[in-house]
Nucleic acid binder design. Sequence first.
DNA 1: ACCTGAACACCGTTCAAGT
DNA 2: ACCTGAACACCGTTCAAGT
Lengths: 183, 183
Amino acid sequence: MRADARRNHERLLTVARSAFTEHGTDTSLEDVARRAGVGVGTLYRHFPSRRALISAVFQSEADALVARGRELLDAAEPCAALLDWLRALIGHAVTYRGLSRTLMTASPDGSCELSSCSVPVRTAGGALLARAQRAGSVRPEVGIGDLLQLTNAIAIAAEESPDDAGLADRLLTLTLHGLRPAA
Amino acid sequence: MRADARRNHERLLTVARSAFTEHGTDTSLEDVARRAGVGVGTLYRHFPSRRALISAVFQSEADALVARGRELLDAAEPCAALLDWLRALIGHAVTYRGLSRTLMTASPDGSCELSSCSVPVRTAGGALLARAQRAGSVRPEVGIGDLLQLTNAIAIAAEESPDDAGLADRLLTLTLHGLRPAA
DNA sequence: ACCTGAACACCGTTCAAGT
DNA sequence: ACCTGAACACCGTTCAAGT
């Protein structure tokens, strides 16, 4: 890659990250290009679709989530570890408004642009869930796919109610109660 | 209201209803106007915003939900009645893709265009929830606001996974488990 | 090899002119 | 009193021309 191309690539990522934080992932791509000091065409050359750009921006957060998941596998309380991790997931989703929506549409197999983010995240969550299930603190019939969809749904609810700061946590707690096996 | 104005109003409602069913509530308003045989300006005269149009279309479903809620207040099992009603709510939301999103942003007080729909629905749900709580089958600290936000969130997850027909039901079941008081 | 930005298509919304 | 549709603003995406 040519030096200027590489610089443009990185500039676009930086600008896109802050634009997504400020205005959500639906922000104007024209605006991103302008703020990065490049033509729109250059943006499309580097990131052929909005999803590709979102994916690239989210990649580092996804890595962090996977790393956090690995740490939490050693935590004392498997169920609390799972909750912590889901909270972290929601935190990322709320930072980039609209991300949850994009993640929800990412198919579980590796077929779309978001797979490089969503598949490892899914795997990390799956490990935490399985551990909590082995410990008997989560119902065995719950799947990681369902749990992630529900968590993303909660993130969307939180995005839409910015004035209710505790909502996501309350809904997550409710969900966690639902995960516990019947007595 | 003049006769032609009344006819236009009804035509717009009919067309909007089917357009929302086909393409979701994000459908092109220009298209709705065209299919109704009126100019765009006429659409805006009758419904000054997209939300106003959505609200008008949803009004009759909201009425139906309220009626269903009243019936279910006499059902034998308070908790099962609540579940039935939430399922019905999700059904409406899935029919009009995007509706849940709009409903989620409707404030609980009567301040926005959607209040004429959302407030009565909220009240109906609140009655069913309160009954289940009095019967001791739902945790007392859960509020109707949180429950509706979560239900709408589940509806969004279902919309985004059209290939997984059972998703909404599974997530709703999970939630209902969470509502049960700790043993 | 990469970049630019004009060009095209599309949509939401408004408003002057018409009936 | 109501309707029409052209006009404006905005955005996503493509591609011919430039370096």
